[in-house]
Amino acid sequence: MRSIPHLSSALARTALRGAAPLMAAACIAGFTGQAVAQAAVDPSVDLAPLTQQWLDDAVSRNQTAGMPLRMEVSVGALDSRLRLAPCAKVEPYLPVGARLWGRTRLGLRCVQGATAWNVFLPVTVKAYGPAWVLTSNVAPGAVLTANDATEAEVDWAADNTPVMANPDLWVGLVASRQLVVGQALRQNMVRAPHLFRAGAQVKVMAQGPGYAVTSAGQAMSAGGAGDSVRIRMANGRIVGGIVGADGTVEVAL
């Protein structure tokens, strides 16, 4: 296993003040796609050194500037039952749809040999960075406070859902499900408090080019700021919209 040093503390502090979920998304996006690299290897030696070097280089190239993450890449083993033909040149590549984040795989194909072959090697990419870890259990629907979590270093790549590294992003929000002590807070674990319940009368604002019309409708589900909800209008028509900070449902026409 090799560790890629984290970025400067100044950059880390700047990142912590920003939107951590966006940073995590950018990091994941930066590790997707295909990369092409070729290297001459002795077919009698293990492929692990070539693979490890390719992965370390790929992670270093793609690490987003400003990310307060300490990357670690580890290479698994090929199926021991495989018997690969000698090959003078092996090309590592990232399979379509794969990404260097969490448990993934790397392709290895022979591009110069008497017999062409293509195999997949399991790899694990860990991204250690600051996060907020729960210090007690939190019941569904409970409002989170600053006392519910403490800052710690966790593996962001242990889950595809972005972490919430800035307390401003989760303090005052509501637990969307049962949360357990030791969990790192992530986006899918919290939601905005409900501003209205299902069946409530809500204000609906329909906007179009150069105009805005306000009316009332009945909410078909509970809704909080930023939620997408459906509203039944007085004429029976069902419209969809986004809940604003004041509970108004904004519908684009």
Rank of each mutant, 00 (worst) to 15 (best):
L121T: 13
D227P: 15
G182Q: 14
T145D: 10
A58E: 14
V251M: 05
Q183L: 12
I4D: 13
V180I: 05
T248K: 01
A158I: 02
P5L: 12
G141K: 09
I28S: 07
V213P: 05
R237A: 14
T135M: 08
Q38H: 04
S136G: 00
A131F: 07
V45G: 01
I28N: 09
P5D: 11
A48L: 06
N147Q: 15
R105G: 12
R232P: 04
V75I: 13
D79E: 00
A142Y: 02
L84N: 02
N147F: 14
A48W: 05
V174G: 11
M67F: 11
P5S: 11
L50K: 02
G247H: 02
I28Y: 09
L55W: 07
V143H: 07
Q38C: 04
R197L: 08
A39F: 02
Q201N: 15
A48C: 03
V41W: 02
V96Y: 05
G107M: 11
A157T: 02
R13E: 13
A26P: 03
G241P: 06
T14E: 12
L84S: 02
N160C: 02
P122W: 10
G172F: 10
P162D: 01
N188M: 11
Q183C: 08
T64R: 05
G224N: 12
S136P: 01
A37H: 01
D155I: 10
T161Y: 09
G18V: 14
K203N: 06
L84Q: 01
Y128M: 14
G226T: 14
L134F: 11
A192M: 03
G76D: 05
V154D: 04
L134V: 10
V138E: 00
N137C: 09
G247V: 00
L47R: 04
Q183N: 10
D227T: 15
R232V: 03
A37I: 00
V90M: 06
E250T: 05
V125Y: 10
T115N: 12
P49V: 04
M1P: 11
W156F: 05
T51E: 06
N235V: 01
D227V: 15
E153R: 05
Q187L: 12
M205Y: 08
G76F: 05
A48Y: 00
G208Y: 12
R186W: 02
A252G: 02
